[in-house]
Design a binder for these strands. Structure first.
Lengths: 347, 347
DNA sequence: GCTAGAGATGTAACCGGTTACAAGCACGGA
DNA sequence: TCCGTGCTTGTAACCGGTTACATCTCTAGC
């Protein structure tokens, strides 16, 4: 690795000048700048990131906080790959990298001074590494944990969890809007007894989707029947159980909006188990547009989230906070209803 | 953030001693060590990672090289989440984090000295960040790219690509063994005309799976018929096309081993399109055990890879290279045949 | 009692940049 | 001619650790 010192010597200038060429080019005369740039290119020099981070108290890295919640084993992020790709490409264009932060019970106590509590450990790790900011992925962790991040003063952007603070914001889909659109679609197909299987209590996107469901009914002038709202937890199993319960009623719904594709698949299975045909006897709409949605039979009509958009938006918001000072407005990503076969059609 | 200097002052020792307590505790007297440890804990001190990396020329981070190949758009890693979780937890127990490295066309030329060629850019980035090692994910990149990494002298471990060098090794599934087991299963069910749809040419796991297929036939004393071997590319579409071609023959196979689950799903669809019932008219085995495998109808019998094992093994091999000097032997992860419904049963 | 040697600790150089401040220089106006 | 101003560049302190080497102390052995 070639250092700035070597470049400086070859150019007959001081290291300070070399540094300036990279950080405040305007402060260097054109002639000198060009000479330094040429030599730097020839020697394939670029500044050592550790030294730069130490000196600037800020590294070219953004931390990713992503834990899988112990209380929800087997939980998988519906579109981790797209998310990471989106983040990576948006960050790269500003020269940043993504550091997947690891804390673990195993690693605890191995050295004196390693703190125990989780969000605190993350914040301290962030400071120790001079990270420029944090991306927080909702993993069912306590909402409290997130406020700790927001209060830390570090630039951070949360995904699917409302977060606000002087340097904190969040990105989420237009969950209510998407859900309302799904209901509108069912209404347009002539359904009037429309049920929903919701996500877990306390989860913000879940609550928003329920709100959208209610709004969709209200827009159509349909009454809300409490018995048509059953609580799920986003997992397939709960969709199955919820649907079975709905179908056991005397006057079962003719359509159901499931707040996740996994639950929609569960609902599909429950309908099949009850001897019903989808979409003839029951229309099903899901949410997420995960990969399997197009694969089940019948292919699932669902509210698609803008998966790469999450990464791009999160990176954009974070970089804005890093480079300027204030927190940008929360980003609400539009959703898109993908019509497949699980609702049939009017024709 | 508390610095070592402050701890040292409070303890009435020099910073060197504080540093020693963390790095070579044996070199410090018990009394001093305990005093420093206590104060460090009270002040919640832990060493600044940027400074440490700069001084030691080695950071507590491991780089992840993961590019999606432009020539294969839409390619998704079959188990990225498990892989990352495995890596994360194994690395965390040694205090390491995972840095998702980003290079991008957009980021190019923004500063003087940023090199262009991809693997070289990664290696240089690794040096600049003082990364301890690299994890390389196969993404259909040229094999040449990987030898560049191996030759760089950096500790690196590749996934699913054979890599060797003084500080390089790799982790892969027992692809041949798994494929042979799949064929053995089909043979045990009475099949004698067993076809295969292979992965792309030039891909090592694909070649190994084909080899295992051939071994399975040989073990059973079955002849190899070239016309029953069709080339795919791991994508669903190629499974569909390949199966259609096989079924178009006068004497179509009664069983097929697809080298990926995606292709197996394609084969399932082709069989359905041809009016065949699975497994009654055609038995299908896949490879990978991706999430959809259990969801298609009929549920796919497939060769499961040890997904979290990849992460753990990769981290283990890498840490071994980082901490000792030599390169450990390549790791061959056992596979497991998961029997579902797509092959029927003898009963 | 003296000294060699082991063990503990401090001193200071170093890792490779960034940046406040000072200094040098050219130029324009009085 | 002199001085103030602005532009360019160098000097040196600093970021926060690590570690080779020097120094000091204490003990064991003769």
């Amino acid at each position: 690795m070639v250092t700035a010192r070597e470049v400086a010597q070859l150019c007959g200038v001081s290291v300070a000048t070399v540094s300036r060429v990279f950080n405040r080019p305007a402060a260097v005369s054109a002639a000198t700048r060009e000479r330094v740039e040429r030599v730097a290119r020839e020697l394939d020099f670029s500044p050592n990131e550790s030294a730069r981070a130490l000196s600037r108290q800020q590294s070219a890295m953004v931390g990713l906080v992503w834990d899988t919640d112990h209380r929800r084993p087997g939980w998988r992020h519906p579109f981790l790959q797209d998310l990471l790709l989106g983040l990576k490409s948006a960050l790269s264009s500003h020269g940043y990298h993504l550091l997947l932060l690891a804390t673990s019970d195993d690693a605890r106590d191995r050295r004196p001074g390693v703190s125990l509590a989780d969000p605190i450990a993350y914040v301290s790790m962030t400071r120790r590494h001079h990270l420029a900011g944090l991306v927080l992925i909702d993993s069912g962790t306590d909402a409290d944990a997130f406020t700790t991040f927001a209060q830390s003063g570090l630039p951070c952007v949360a995904l699917d969890v409302a977060l606000s603070g002087p340097r904190a914001t969040y990105v989420t889909s237009d969950n209510a809007g998407g859900a309302a659109e799904a209901v509108r679609h069912l209404v347009a197909l002539g359904h009037t007894r429309i049920a929903t299987i919701t996500g877990p209590r306390g989860n913000a996107p879940a609550a928003d989707r329920t709100e959208g469901y209610l709004r969709g009914l209200a827009e159509a002038g349909l009454p809300v029947r409490d018995e048509l709202v059953v609580t799920g937890d986003f997992y397939r199993e709960s969709g199955f159980v919820g649907m079975r319960r709905l179908l056991a009623r005397k006057d079962p719904p003719t359509a159901v909006f499931a707040a996740s594709d996994e639950m929609a698949v569960g609902a599909l299975l429950a309908a099949r188990a009850a001897g019903l045909r989808v979409p003839a006897d029951l229309a099903v709409v899901g949410f997420d547009d995960i990969e399997v949605a197009s694969l089940v039979d019948p292919a699932l009509t669902t509210v698609a989230q803008d998966k790469p958009g999450f990464g791009t938006a999160a990176a954009g918001a974070l970089l804005a906070m890093i480079e300027n000072a204030g927190a940008p407005e929360p980003v609400l990503l539009p959703t898109k209803l993908v019509i497949r076969d699980s609702c049939g059609s009017r024709s």
